[in-house]
Design a protein around this nucleic acid. Structure first.
Lengths: 210, 210
DNA sequence: AGTACAACTTGACATTGTCAAGTACAACGA
DNA sequence: TCGTTGTACTTGACAATGTCAAGTTGTACT
């Protein structure tokens, strides 16, 4: 196989990554094959190894890209006019549904540990920091860190659970007749946002409780 | 499916299933190998095919067993003295953490669709019905089905998100120093339960116990 | 010109999922 | 008693996979 004469530097890496993301998006992470990736990128079966070392290296790269994009998405809704919580839920769900390939890899320690790769770790760190700032905008920054952390984990769980149940889970098959998936997601996000707002209000009105 | 009248050998089907669950629990679903399963069960590499047809057949069987167990766990906390919501969260998390092998398969449409297998479908149906009943115990049964469904999806998302972030996600690496994973999970469950109770109260309904 | 290195390539190997075909043995009707 | 049928496996083979090893080619710098 003769390589194209004017291959740009870094072209292949991007081609391989995109092919991998496409495969994961359509068939799931477990059916990602190094050789199929190479085939779709139009390179030899060892070219991906040159850039990513091994199979988990591809997952690490996708994960890093995903966390960076997620952090960016959080940053983008920072000056949203709606509540910080609701904006965050919407951003999380929209990221997950628009980047299924990334999302399917990012939160799977079994196939790609957040700590395995340095770039992935810092990207994940930055996304988590954006989350904490979003929480601060929701419940105020005077709350003690422990409670803030618990609040962050709670909102994260809400958003993450909904996203995973929608993307890989059975939720779409449990819809009430006449309710579209989009509508149902909106309704859940509204309910979550409302519950978070109620809780935040109560935290602000009860000073000496904790 | 009729068991042999006199079965002096170990139940091969059970051995295979348990070996598979153990592998998934320790290494994740994608590293489940039919041949390794057979090896651990002490049978030939084709014996598992006799009982499960193919690789996804094993996943389907595990999924069915998991949903049955989850439905049972929901049923068991029905007469709990604590609030239905909190009991449900605790049951979900404890199921997930005590049956990691099952949990890793049950909600992954990409490796085992809920609708692929009839047994899996009815087991999942029954677990979902228990969820709906738990919601009814939380917000009352006079609420319209649409709102009840949204409430169910919301609580399900909360529990499921926390479970997945704990089991396969990066949550355990994001703990505040001095806070144990168990304590953090408890705190999130308490916050979720509290928010659900606030919402139920606002809907004009009396929480069953609190 | 020579050296070093990056960006690939071809080749080989053990392991995998699965199809095909065989074996052992119990139960049953004739 | 004999043959048939069915269950519960087994051995064998095959293409495909992840990955190690060892080229090959071009570009950059000394």
């Amino acid at each position: 196989m003769v390589p194209a004469p004017h291959d740009q530097h870094g072209d292949v890496r991007r081609l391989v990554l995109d092919a991998a993301i496409a495969i994961i998006e359509s068939d799931g992470a477990e059916s990602l094959s190094m050789r199929e990736v190479a085939r779709r990128a139009g390179v030899s079966h060892q070219a991906p190894y040159h850039y990513f070392g091994d199979r988990s290296g591809i997952f690490a790269a996708i994960s890093e890209e995903g966390f960076s994009a997620l952090a960016g998405a959080f940053r983008d809704v920072q000056e949203s006019t709606i509540s910080a919580a609701k904006a965050g839920f919407i951003a999380y769900l929209s990221f997950a549904r628009n980047h299924v390939g990334h999302f399917r890899v990012m939160f799977r320690q079994d196939i790609c540990g957040v700590t395995d790769n340095e770039g992935t770790a810092t990207a994940a760190e930055s996304a988590f920091n954006e989350l904490l700032q979003m929480v601060a905008r929701t419940i105020g920054s005077s709350v003690d860190p422990k409670a803030a952390h618990t609040f962050a984990f709670t909102m994260w769980s809400q958003a993450h659970g909904l996203a995973t149940l929608v993307i890989d889970g059975p939720l779409p098959q449990k819809l009430l007749p006449g309710v579209s998936l989009d509508d149902q997601i909106d309704a859940v996000i509204n309910l979550c946002s409302h519950m978070v707002a109620l809780e935040a209000a109560e935290m602000g009105l009860v000073p000496s409780h904790s």
